[in-house]
Write a protein that binds this DNA or RNA. Structure first.
Lengths: 156, 156
DNA sequence: ACCGGGGTTGAGAACCGGTTTCAAGCGGGA
DNA sequence: TCCCGCTTGAAACCGGTTCTCAACCCCGGT
């Protein structure tokens, strides 16, 4: 949050109430928030924030490198604070939608190596593993196909 | 292509001209095609194929396991034939959009291991590495920022 | 404090992949 | 060849995201 204020100050960008509201909504959450989630969290707040501004501020935060943007194939994006935490990957349950985060030093090293091999200057990457979590494997009736059409298609 | 006919025959699904046209457009391409690309490739063909049918046939092909679906964050999907080729990962140039494919046995093993560790029954995964390719690093004027907004946004 | 102007905001409209609808048209077994 | 059920196409629809533009606010200069 302080890093956000600093970023804005550095480039002489106005620090409006709306921007602070959106930024704090994200920074004080550990979840992967959708735009709907953010709007809901802001509702009832004394500062009203329009949808357009939420999107614009998210853009700003992503460009600032303070927020990370994800697409879990639900048809809309999710955002999470990048704070001081290191980069991590996602394990997504195709049955219940649960998202588990993990990190792997070996993967970090490997992706750098691979980028190098192909002459790429590495920038960022995304590794998402889809499967069925332990809970769903128990009380499940072969959900993989069913859920796939909900997740994959669905779209806009 | 023959695998497609076989698949349709096996489950008594009508093999229409439209379906053959869409399938061959994909199977005879080495690219990652967007729906626009496919429609363009089909234009001028004697068999006219509507947009809805292109989507429906793609769905069919994906479910059949003959075509793979990708989202490179451009705001729309791309498709590629899965033929007999093994699963592979993507290296995407954020400057010119070029996509390089690669495979890594180590990554395959690692993702299975990681899914196991978290009690997930592994299904599929996606690893995309974003960076700047060799060509773009030469005649480049720090394109990362510019291109990001072109690639990343677009969406819906 | 006050001013002024350039960046920001909000409501709604526009946009755009993608999906659904439904009447008309085919495929292919009998 | 007949017929039924699945498929097709055009257009309407959907929902997330972006654009528009007049009103508004942040903030440096005074």
């Amino acid at each position: 949050m302080e890093r956000f204020r600093e970023y804005m100050r550095d480039r002489n960008l106005p620090l409006t109430h709306q921007r602070e509201a959106v930024a704090s909504a994200i920074f004080y959450s550990e979840e992967h928030l959708s735009v709907d989630d953010i709007e809901a969290a802001l509702r009832g707040n004394e500062v009203h924030v329009g949808k357009a501004t939420v999107y614009r501020t998210l853009d700003l935060l992503v460009r600032a490198g303070l927020v990370d943007e994800h697409d879990f194939g639900e048809g809309f994006r999710r955002f999470e604070p990048l704070s001081a935490r290191t980069h991590h990957e996602h394990l997504i349950c195709t049955s219940c939608g649960k998202v588990v985060e993990f990190t792997s030093e070996r993967i970090e090293r490997m992706k750098a190596l691979i980028a190098d091999e192909h002459g790429f200057r590495h920038h960022h990457h995304r590794l998402d593993i889809y499967g069925v979590c332990g809970d769903c494997q128990e009380h499940a009736v072969e959900p993989s196909e069913t859920r796939r059409s909900e997740l994959g298609r669905g779209s806009r």
